[in-house]
Nucleic acid binder design. Structure first.
Length: 882
RNA sequence: GGGCGGUUAGCUCAGCGGUAGAGCGCCUGCCUUACACGCAGGAUGUCAUUGGUUCGAAUCCAGUACCGCCCACCA
C-alpha cells in the first residue's frame, strides 16, 4: 500500500463528510434499543458566518456526540438556525439601502418576502460551514425558528402565558433604539461609560422667592420635566417641598416634590423629574401621579414641547439648550462627568428611554422554579461557579419586554377591535371580533428573537404535539454554550422548559470560555484581530483546528488562540499519520491475528498497560467535560509512549522477523491493536484523519470508524510490573543518550556500553533487553559487567545502574570530572532537603504512612545514586592516575 | 455600587495539600530507511505580595497590590 509521507486533510475531509452523510450515520433512531443521548445545537444566526467561537462550541459538541455515539448511545444532536430578528432585518435593510430604498418603501409583506428570499439564498452558508467542521448532527431533524412547527410552539406559549396573566401589555418606559426603531430588553442594551458633563441648572421659583439648582447630564430633556424632586429628609430643601418652580426656557410651573430615591450627596441633591425619558423618573412620576410630557420622539428628535427646538436631534438640542441657559444666566456650572449609558447591542446607537405600549413577560413566577431546579441539582452547571452568575441574575430579574417594532419574526398573536376595544389573543387567527363582529387588526409587533430561542429544546422536538422525539429526547442531556448567553438563553430555556414540560431542558450546562487572540485580547472586527475559521481549516486542516480547540478548552478559562499552537497540533496529526504509516508498512498484506498474552514481551505488556490507563483517563475526563485533559492524555500517549518509545523499542523485533517470526508476529499484532484503539479513542477529536486511517487498516468489512465502538478499558492489561521495569529502562536509555551528548561522542558512532546493575532485577532487565537498549542508544553492544575503575570511559549513574562507555583516548578527563562533580552536588542538595524531612519527628508521626514510605524509598534511591556517582568519580581518578 | 475571576519558565497556559508541568520559543547535536509537520540531548521559575492553618502550601484561609470580566435606574 502506498501511503504519502504527509497527511493531506482536504480531500479526505470532503470524502468522509459525504460518506458519513450518505450512510446516514448520524440519524437518531428513536425506535432502537440504545439509550438516548440528546443535545440541541445553540442555533447560529441564519445570516451569520461561522466564526471562531462557533468552531469551539461545535467542536466540543461534536466530541461529545461522537464519543457517546461510539459508546453505543442513540445520539441525537439536533441542528438548526435562528432567525435572529434584528440582526437579520438589519442585513436586508442594509442591502435595500444600497438600492436607495427602505423597508417602508416595500411595505411589510414585500419586505418579509425579501428576507425569506435572502434566507433561502444565504442561509445555507452557515449550514455548509457546520458540515465542513465535521459536525455529526442529524440533518433530517434540522429546524429553523420560523418553521411552521416552531411558530406554532411560539404562539401556543404566548397564548398560555397570556391566559395565565404571565404575559401582559402595558404602557411603560422601555429601552428604545432610535435607529432600529424598536424597543429592546434590558439585556439587549449594553452599558458603556461615556464621557459626559454634569450641568447645574437653576430653576427659579414661580414667585421669585427662591431657586433650586438641579444637576443633570441631559439638559435637553428638561422640556419633559414635570417636577423637581428632593429627599424628604434633606434639611436644605425641606420648606421648598410643595412649592412651584418655573421650568426654565419653557416657563412652565412644576412642583417640588419629596422622594426618598433622591441621593442627597449627588450633585445638588435636587433632581429634575422627566418621567417620559428616564426610567427612574418614570417610576417617580407614577408614584406621585405626575403627567408624562414627551419631549423626544422615536427618532430621538425634539417634539413640539421643545418649542423652536422641535425637530432637532437630541444632541444638537442639548447644545442649544445649554447655550440658552447660559445666556439667561441659569447655568450655574458644568462638570466633567463620566457615566454609563445604554447602547443598542446591535447598532451601537445610544438608547433613548421612551414610554410606549409593549408586551412583557411577568418573569418572577417563572424564575422561581428555575432557581429551585438548579439549587436542587436537576440541572448542573460545569464549571459550577457559573451557577452563581445564574442565581445572581435570576434573583434580581425584571420583567422581560418581548415586543419588538420589527417585521422579521414571530408576529404577536394579539388582535384588536378598534371600534369596541376588544383584545383577542389566540393561537389561530380569529375571524372577527367576538364582541361586535367588527374587523380585527393584528398587533404590528413581533416577538424578541430570544422568545423563540427559549423554547428551542422542546419546540424542536415537536412540542406542542406529543411526539415520539419529545418523549424520548427531552430533557436533553447537556447544553454547551458560552457564558455570554447565560441570561439571554440558558436562563430563559430553564424557565420555559420547566413551565411547559415540568422538567428542566437539560441535565448539565457546560460553559466554555471565550476564544481570544494570541495575546489574550478579545477578538473583534473593529480591532481587526479576528481569525477566519475557514482560513485556519484551509491552512492546518479541520482536525488540527478541532484538536486545538479541545485541548485548549480548560474549564473556566478563556482560550488564547496562537497560530503556532495550531501548527503544533497539525504536526501532531501528521505524526499520527506517520506512526500509522509505519505500522501499516510493517503489517504488509498479511494482517496479524490477535496477540496472545503469553507471547507478549515486556515492552508489549508495557504499552498495553499504558494504553489501558489512558483510555480510562480519557473516558473519565470526558465524563467531566475535561476536553483539555482528554485530548492532552491522548496527545502524549501517541507522541510519547507510542511513537517515541514503543515503536522504537519494537523495531529490533520487527527487523529480526526471520530469526524469530513468532516474536515479530506478536509485535505486529500489538502494534495493530494499539493503533486501532488509538484511532477509536481519538476519533471524536480528529474524525477525518482517524477515519481515513481506519479505512486503511487491514481486514475486510471494517465499517465506519464514526460508528465503531469506543475503546473500553480491558482492566487486565494494566501491568504495574511492566510499567516499572520499562520506567527503569527508559531512565537508563535517557542517561546513556545524555552521556553520549554531554561527552560529545560522534552521533554516528556505535559505542560499546557497559552497565553495572545494582541488583538482580536490573541485571535481568539489561540482559533481556540489551538488543532494544542498543538500538535506542546506537550501541554496538550492551552488556552487564563490573566496571573497571581504571578504564577511560564516559560514566554516569541512573536509578539502579552505573554506566560506562569506554572511550580510549577520546575523553577529556577534566571535563568529565567537572561534569560528575556538578551532578554530585545536585544530588547532595536534593538529598539534604529530603533528609531534613525524614529527620523531622512530626513528619514521621503525622504524615500518612504511604507518604513516609515513599519518601524513604526516594531517599534510599538518592543515597544509592550518590554513592554511585562517588564511585564513578573515584574510578575516573583511578583512570587518570598512572 | 454589587458580583465573579486572574496573577506559575521568554510567550500562552495546565496543575490546586506531598520531589514545580505542557505547547511554542531558546541552546547543542543529528537528513538514524514512519515522520525535518522529524529525532536526541539541554537550559530556564523567591509559583504577585504579607500573614495564618498544617508534619508539609503554588495548592487551603485572611489581608494587600495590580489586571480582567459581568451585572447595576446616583440624575
Amino acid at each position: 500500500m502506498e501511503i504519502p509521507k504527509e497527511y493531506l486533510p482536504h480531500e479526505s475531509e470532503d470524502r468522509w463528510t459525504a460518506a458519513w452523510e450518505s450512510a446516514a450515520l448520524f440519524r437518531a433512531d428513536p425506535g432502537g434499543a440504545k439509550a438516548p443521548f440528546c443535545m440541541v445545537i445553540p442555533p447560529p444566526n441564519v445570516t451569520g458566518n461561522l466564526h471562531i467561537g462557533h468552531v469551539l462550541v461545535y467542536t466540543l459538541h461534536d466530541v461529545v456526540a461522537r464519543w457517546r455515539r461510539m459508546q453505543g448511545r442513540d445520539v441525537l444532536w439536533l441542528p438548526g438556525t435562528d432567525h435572529a430578528g434584528i440582526a437579520t432585518q438589519m442585513v436586508v435593510e442594509r442591502e435595500l439601502a444600497k438600492e436607495g430604498k427602505s423597508r417602508h418603501d416595500l411595505g411589510r409583506e414585500a419586505f418579509v418576502e425579501r428576507v425569506w428570499e435572502w434566507k433561502k439564498r444565504y442561509g445555507g452558508r452557515i449550514v455548509e460551514q457546520l458540515r465542513r467542521l465535521g459536525a455529526s448532527v442529524d440533518w433530517s431533524r434540522e429546524r429553523f425558528t420560523l418553521d411552521d412547527g416552531l411558530s406554532r410552539a411560539v404562539r401556543s406559549v404566548f397564548v398560555r402565558l397570556y391566559q395565565q396573566g404571565l404575559i401582559y401589555r402595558d404602557r411603560y418606559i422601555v429601552n428604545w433604539c432610535p435607529r432600529c426603531h424598536t424597543a429592546l430588553s434590558d439585556l439587549e442594551t449594553v452599558h458603556e461609560p461615556v464621557p459626559g458633563k454634569l450641568y447645574l441648572v437653576r430653576y427659579p421659583s414661580a414667585d421669585g422667592s427662591f431657586s433650586i439648582a438641579v444637576a443633570t447630564t441631559r439638559p435637553e430633556t428638561m422640556f419633559g420635566d414635570v417636577a423637581v424632586a428632593v429627599h424628604p429628609d434633606d434639611e436644605r430643601y425641606r420648606d421648598r417641598v410643595g412649592k412651584q418652580v418655573l421650568l426654565p426656557l419653557a416657563d412652565r410651573p412644576i412642583p417640588v416634590i419629596a422622594d426618598a430615591f433622591v441621593e442627597r450627596e449627588f450633585g445638588t441633591g435636587a433632581v429634575k423629574i422627566t418621567p417620559a425619558h428616564d426610567p427612574n423618573d418614570f417610576e417617580a412620576g407614577r408614584r406621585h401621579g405626575l403627567p408624562e410630557v414627551v419631549a423626544i420622539d422615536t427618532s430621538a428628535r425634539m417634539t413640539a414641547e421643545a418649542g423652536d427646538l422641535a425637530g432637532l436631534d437630541r444632541f444638537e438640542a442639548r447644545a442649544r439648550t445649554v447655550e440658552r441657559l447660559e445666556a439667561r444666566g441659569l447655568l450655574l456650572g458644568v462638570r466633567e462627568h463620566e457615566h454609563a449609558v445604554g447602547h443598542c447591542q446591535r447598532c451601537g446607537t445610544m438608547i433613548e428611554p421612551l414610554v410606549s405600549h409593549q408586551w412583557f413577560v411577568k418573569i418572577a413566577p417563572l424564575a422561581e422554579p428555575a432557581i429551585a431546579a438548579v439549587e436542587r441539582g436537576d440541572t448542573r452547571f460545569v464549571p459550577e461557579t457559573w451557577a452563581k452568575t445564574y442565581f445572581e441574575w435570576m434573583r434580581n430579574i425584571h420583567d422581560w419586554c418581548i415586543s419588538r417594532q420589527l417585521w422579521w419574526g414571530h408576529r404577536i398573536p394579539a388582535w384588536y377591535c378598534d371600534p369596541c376595544g376588544t383584545v383577542v389573543v389566540a393561537e389561530s387567527d380569529p375571524e372577527g371580533c367576538e364582541g361586535c363582529g367588527g374587523p380585527l387588526r393584528q398587533d404590528d409587533d413581533v416577538l424578541d428573537t430570544w422568545f423563540s430561542s427559549a423554547l428551542w429544546p422542546f419546540s424542536t422536538l415537536g412540542w406542542p404535539d406529543d411526539t415520539e422525539d419529545l418523549r424520548r429526547y427531552y430533557p436533553t442531556d447537556v447544553l454547551i454554550t458560552g457564558f455570554d448567553i447565560i441570561f439571554f438563553w440558558v436562563a430563559r430555556m430553564m424557565m420555559m422548559g420547566l413551565k411547559f414540560r415540568d422538567e428542566v431542558p437539560f441535565r448539565e450546562v457546560y460553559i466554555h470560555g471565550l476564544v481570544r487572540d494570541a495575546r489574550g485580547q478579545k477578538m473583534s472586527k473593529s480591532k481587526g484581530n479576528t481569525i477566519d475559521p475557514q482560513e485556519l481549516q484551509g491552512r492546518y486542516g479541520t482536525d488540527a483546528v478541532r484538536l486545538t480547540m479541545a485541548i485548549l478548552a480548560a474549564p473556566g478559562n478563556d482560550i488564547p488562540l496562537a497560530p503556532e499552537r495550531m501548527e503544533g497540533y497539525r504536526a501532531f496529526c501528521n505524526k499520527l499519520w506517520n506512526a500509522s504509516r509505519f505500522v501499516l508498512m510493517r503489517l504488509g498484506d498479511a494482517p496479524p491475528g490477535a496477540w496472545s498474552r503469553e507471547r507478549l514481551s515486556l515492552v508489549d505488556r508495557w504499552i498495553l498497560s499504558r494504553l489501558d490507563r489512558v483510555v480510562g483517563d480519557v473516558a473519565r475526563a470526558l465524563e467531566e467535560y475535561r476536553f483539555d485533559r482528554a485530548a492532552d492524555a491522548l496527545y502524549h500517549f501517541v507522541w510519547g509512549d507510542f511513537c517515541d518509545w514503543y515503536i522504537e523499542l519494537v523495531k529490533p523485533d520487527l527487523a529480526a522477523g526471520d530469526a524469530d517470526p513468532a516474536r515479530a508476529e506478536t509485535a505486529r499484532a500489538v502494534l495493530l491493536d494499539v493503533l486501532s484503539t488509538v484511532l477509536r479513542a481519538m476519533h471524536p477529536f480528529v474524525p477525518f484523519l482517524t477515519e481515513e486511517l481506519w479505512q486503511k487498516l487491514p481486514g475486510d468489512s471494517r465499517g465506519y470508524l464514526a460508528v465503531a465502538s469506543w475503546p473500553v478499558s480491558r482492566g487486565g492489561d494494566v501491568d504495574p510490573e511492566a510499567e516499572s521495569a520499562v520506567g527503569m529502562l527508559q531512565e537508563l536509555v535517557v542517561k546513556i543518550r545524555n552521556l553520549r551528548a554531554e561527552t560529545r561522542i560522534d552521533p554516528a558512532r556505535a559505542v560499546e556500553v557497559v552497565i553495572a546493575p545494582a541488583d538482580e532485577a536490573g541485571r535481568r532487565l539489561v540482559g533481556e533487553e540489551s538488543a532494544r537498549i542498543a538500538s535506542l542508544v546506537r550501541a554496538s553492544t550492551v552488556r552487564c559487567a563490573a566496571l573497571e575503575p581504571g578504564a577511560v570511559a564516559a560514566r554516569g549513574v541512573a536509578r539502579g545502574f552505573e554506566i560506562a562507555i569506554p572511550l580510549e583516548g577520546v575523553l577529556d578527563i577534566e571535563l568529565e570530572r567537572a561534569r560528575l562533580a556538578k551532578e554530585l552536588s545536585k544530588i547532595e542538595s536534593e538529598l539534604e532537603a529530603r533528609s531534613r524531612k525524614l529527620d523531622n519527628p512530626s513528619f514521621l508521626e503525622r504524615a500518612p504512612r504511604e507518604v513516609v514510605d515513599k519518601e524513604r524509598v526516594l531517599h534510599g534511591e538518592l543515597l544509592e545514586k550518590r554513592s554511585g556517582v562517588r564511585r564513578t568519580l573515584a574510578a575516573l581518578s583511578g583512570g587518570q592516575a598512572p
